[in-house]
Design a binder for these strands. Structure first.
Lengths: 119, 119
DNA sequence: TGGGATAGTTACCAAAAAGTAGGAATTAGG
DNA sequence: CCTAATTCCTACTTTTTGGTAACTATCCCA
């Protein structure tokens, strides 16, 4: 068991996949990067991702914060205000992520078989 | 429901994630790309991914084949022989994937909090 | 008094993903 | 006749993921 875990820790691909290879993380990173000043509040992100539930957005942001890809700034106000932005590490990921998106757009038709039902 | 699906089909990030953002796909692509002549048999891949079950490898290869990223060549022999290799589309993905892996190696320490238990 | 706004959390449930174990098919080798 | 090798498939079970709805707390506004 410990060996398997060590293997996980050593494999860079799994690092990547386990950190932001889920349903919403890349989308959040992309949205934060695309925003004008790089800073968005919780409900601003939510309005841009209409089919992501509040719970999932909350979870995703927390996970990205724990991975030091997203910075979370809380203002002690009522009603509460929380601002999210990319960290330097998060910013450094964007060129790679954008390349991935560009590839995806370019090869869309080769890859996607419209007969396959998607999850 | 139809709107949500249309949105999925339109979003390049979800295209990416849904095609090879799962637990094993990137690893298979990486292994195929790293092999000497780019061709590997089922059990050769399996031996390189010791903690991936036979079922999951089979499923992953099938999914990658359906996405036209991996080519599957069957020899009508007994016992059966099947060879897997990257398609041209699959090969075109590798620079991006390698960039992702390089980023992951470079920023490993910034991202990974060793206190978090990984799946 | 009673919403509305903000940024969540929690409990509960359904669906999907993944692991385990076993089988199928075929022929060669002992 | 029994086993091994190869590439799967199927049934069953567990784990993970994601969705819904309700709840928290506080202040402003009417």
């Amino acid at each position: 068991m410990a060996d398997v875990k060590a293997e996980y820790l050593a494999c860079p691909i799994r690092q990547v996949v386990s950190r932001f290879g889920d349903k919403w993380s890349m989308l959040v990173l992309y949205i934060l990067n695309s925003s004008e000043d790089g800073v968005l509040r919780f409900n601003e992100i939510r309005r841009l991702m209409t089919d992501c539930s509040q719970k999932m957005l909350s979870q995703t942001l927390k996970s990205l914060e724990q991975s030091h890809l997203v910075h979370r700034k809380v203002y002690p106000e009522v009603p509460p205000r929380v601002e999210y932005s990319l960290t330097d590490t998060g910013k450094s990921l964007m060129p790679v992520l954008n390349a991935l998106i560009a590839w995806s757009k370019e090869h869309f038709n080769e890859v996607v078989d419209k007969n396959i039902v998607m999850g």
